[in-house]
Amino acid sequence: MWLIDSSIGRKVVMSVTGAALILFLTFHMAMNCVALISGEAYNVICEFLGANWYALVGTAGLAVLMVLHFVFAFWLTIQNRKARGNVRYAVSERPKSVEWASQNMLVLGIIVFVGLLVHFANFWSKMQLQEIIHGTNFVAGQNGPTDGAFLIQYTFSQWYYVVVYTVWLAALWFHLSHGFWSMFQTVGWSGSKWQRRWQVIGNIYVTLVILGFLSVVYFYFFKSLC
């Protein structure tokens, strides 16, 4: 199977799963932004998704994509380190045109993953998980598993979560700034002109997505200060 046993194939897996995850993030960001306008509207969306079968299928699908993206990332990294040989350069300088992010995708990915665990603890474990297991492990004041608006308000009123989420989203920005154009390059939809175009488009797109997420965090943080 060429997706597994060829280097380009493995990269295609990274590219396609990455693309799906970016699409998910875009959707998630759009949904979050609703909370800027109205908490109630946000909760309606939470209810619509909840633990319905389509949401569960989607979640499972996402989990599979995520796992594939992680597993392949580690696999590629191990192969790449082996290909690099045992002796490292004593002096190494990064050329100007090489983005810092592109050489640190795994580290950024790990930061994103750790952030994700925090995020799961903050939200998913109090919402969809409770609905699935019919549990009642809610935060004090949370009005049922679909009361996302409350959780947002609660989490981002605590300054350290604001810091954690900011770092997390910054790491995600770096990760995606390289990942975006890179996924087009990998599947071959690029060239000398389009490489630069994808890079610019990617930077704008990714910045908008991350700003979308951050706006909710800071909106609720400042709201909690007032």
């Binding site: 280097s7 380009i8 493995r10 990269k11 590629l76 192969q79 790449n80 082996k82 290909a83 690099r84 990064r94 050329p95 100007k96 045109s97 090489v98 983005e99 592109s102 050489q103 995708m105 390289h178 154009w181 890179s182 390059q185 990998t186 599947v187 071959g188 939809w189 690029s190 060239g191 000398s192 389009w194 490489q195």
Partner: peptide, 26 residues
């Protein structure tokens, strides 16, 4: 190893070969 599109090759290539060739190979 596997290409991760860091573009270091292109930057250091003494003949300035472009990574658009890598896209074409892909």
């Amino acid at each position: 190893g596997n290409c991760t599109n860091t573009r270091a090759c292109e930057a250091e290539c003494p003949k300035c070969i472009s990574i658009s060739n890598i896209a074409r190979l892909n």
